[in-house]
Every structure is written in structure tokens, then in C-alpha cells.
């Protein structure tokens, strides 16, 4: 009987995960989420982040994650850390050698969304949260089809 309950609980957890994945929160994830973890579990936020990535011309330096003028975003090496909070800070405050600060260009919510999307480029988010291919010329596999990158490590 207890195993049946365990299975039921597992099912409920899966369904609730679906719930979190699909939620549309237009004015930012709730204040109970100071660390921004919820953003990378929500498909809508990640998709909005992907829009911002294009709209803010992030491709200009980082290409589609492979890097160029700026470092690559889809590998596991992170100069300033690859956790969502660290990426959020890199976007918000900028970093030396050219990364501009976006804190007055994007809202806090948008920066979290963008950070969540950046996490999806190396597929550090769940597969069912990462975006699928674009209706455009595609330069590689969509985020949702990428293999998860190796564990995060510092350095370039």
C-alpha cells in the first residue's frame, strides 16, 4: 500500500511540475523567490528570455551561444559563475572587457528571464522547459534538444 502511495505522490509531483512549468506570471515571479530559481523552471519565462536575447542583440557578441567577441554561453566554463544568480548579476551589473550593465535597460524580471534563458543554452534547465527551434534560419540544435553540458566550472 505504501508503494502505491509513493507512486501516487510521484505522479502528483510530476503533474505539479507541469503546473510550474506552464505558469504565466506577467509581473515577475513572486517575492518568495529571491534567488530566482523559479525562472529557470518556467517555460514561459525562458521563452521570454529567448525573445529578449534576440531583441537586445545579445547575438552581437555571444552569437547563438557559441561566443564571438564575448565568451561562449553554451559550454560549462563560466568566468563569473554559471548559476542563475551569478548570470543574473553579470547581466545586471555588467562585467569588465565589454559586457555592459543592463540594470537600466531591462527590468529585474527581464534580467531573470534572460538569465534563465542563458542557463538553457547549455541545457542547465529541464528539457521540457528549454525552448524548441525558432521559426527562422536555425544555426544548430534547439536548446531543448541539446545534451546537458558538463558540470559548471570556473575559468574561460
Amino acid at each position: 500500500m505504501s508503494s502505491a502511495w509513493a507512486r501516487f505522490a510521484l505522479l502528483a509531483a510530476l503533474l505539479l511540475a507541469g503546473c510550474e512549468r506552464e505558469k504565466r506570471v506577467y509581473s515577475g515571479q513572486p517575492a518568495t523567490n529571491p534567488a530566482g530559481e523559479l525562472y529557470q523552471e518556467n517555460a514561459y519565462d525562458v521563452a521570454q528570455g529567448k525573445r529578449l536575447y534576440t531583441w537586445m542583440n545579445c547575438t552581437g557578441c555571444h552569437a547563438h551561444g557559441g561566443g564571438g567577441i564575448g565568451p561562449a554561453l553554451m559550454d560549462n566554463r563560466w568566468i563569473y559563475g554559471g548559476k542563475i544568480q551569478q548570470i543574473y548579476r553579470s547581466i545586471r551589473d555588467g562585467r569588465k572587457n565589454g559586457m555592459p550593465a543592463w540594470k537600466n535597460r531591462l527590468t529585474d524580471q527581464q534580467i531573470w528571464q534572460l538569465a534563465a534563458y542563458v542557463r538553457s543554452m547549455g541545457r542547465y534547465v529541464r528539457k521540457d522547459v528549454a525552448p524548441s527551434r525558432d521559426d527562422a534560419l536555425n544555426s544548430g540544435k534547439a536548446e531543448s534538444r541539446r545534451e546537458r553540458s558538463a558540470p559548471l566550472e570556473p575559468g574561460r
Binding site: 512549468r21 506552464e22 522547459v129 525552448p131 521559426d135 534547439a142
Partner: peptide, 27 residues
């Protein structure tokens, strides 16, 4: 799916691109 917030939302005709990979967000 509908009761866990994953109900389809692109119409019963599901026109692309709205139901497609880019604009049909989530599952």
C-alpha cells in the same frame, strides 16, 4: 493537462506558428 495548467491554448485548429515550436510555449 488542463487542470495542471498545461491545457492547449492555440485553438482547436492549432494554427502554426502560434502552436509551433517558437510561439507555442511549454508542452
Amino acid at each position: 493537462a488542463f487542470f495542471v495548467n498545461s491545457g492547449p491554448d492555440a485553438g482547436w485548429f492549432s494554427y502554426v506558428p502560434l502552436a509551433g515550436p517558437q510561439y507555442g510555449i511549454g508542452k
